[in-house]
Write a protein that binds this DNA or RNA. Structure first.
Length: 213
DNA sequence: GCCCAGGTGTTTC
DNA sequence: GAAACACATGGG
């Protein structure tokens, strides 16, 4: 489906390179911040996640061990601005424990983790899994989010009833298996959705011109 | 005051 | 299985 490539080109031309994932680079290794951010941003505006990450940075919490050793009540307090702090604190603990118990280090985790294994971890669903794989591990998995489904279903390329894997496979099948392209495409979708493709339909959306062919 | 945000797990028909 | 619900803060 040439359309999927065409949408990418249009978005890139409109918004320029987004160069995701955005990080402030306070963790060790730097990919660890992506993993934490991926969990904290679950159903949450990124602005709020930034506040939580800033709190962790100021509290000198910068490694997987820092999370494991930290009192859970303190962790909750630090990530409070990102919402759902009770479950997210637990998820950060669970995930950190998983990384250390099964891989020994974040570096080893990033190198050897598989999609199937990551999906098994409680609190890490489809999107968080693929966000970690794509942006932290540099592996070619397309990150499908609510925006992706909204935009592509409005363009008539998918049905709203399609499940996560269905959408992901369609996109991956119709794009070159290129990590850079996957990273940029997802970032462009988020950028575009925030500006132009909210829940209420925007008549001026630049993608509308692509539909009427 | 209401709606929404870069979801996920559990409960319930 | 899918639909409904809980989880929570902060910005528009």
């Amino acid at each position: 489906m040439i359309m999927i490539r065409k949408i990418y080109d249009t978005l890139l031309k409109e918004h320029a390179h987004q160069k995701w994932w955005p990080i402030s680079d306070f963790t060790k290794p730097k990919e660890w911040e992506i993993c934490i951010g991926a969990i904290l941003t679950q159903n949450t505006a990124w602005k709020n996640v930034e506040k939580a990450l800033s709190n962790l940075k100021n509290a000198n919490c910068k490694t997987v061990d820092d999370i494991l050793w930290m009192d859970i009540r303190k962790l909750k307090r630090l990530i409070r601005p990102s919402g759902f702090f009770n479950q997210k604190a637990k998820r950060l603990k669970t995930f950190s424990r998983y990384v250390i118990d099964n891989f020994g280090s974040v570096e080893n985790f990033l190198k050897n983790i598989t999609r199937e294994e990551l999906l098994e971890v409680n609190g890490i669903g489809h999107e968080t899994t693929d966000a970690i794989l794509l942006y932290a591990c540099g592996k070619p998995y397309f990150v499908v989010d609510a925006y992706t489904k909204r935009i592509f279903s409005r363009l008539g390329i998918i049905e709203q009833t399609w499940g996560y894997e269905q959408v992901r496979e369609l996109l991956e099948k119709n794009l070159p298996e290129d990590v850079k392209v996957y990273q940029e495409y997802h970032a462009l979708i988020v950028k575009h959705a925030k500006e132009c493709c909210k829940k209420t339909v925007n008549e001026n959306c630049i993608l509308r011109s692509l539909v009427i062919v």
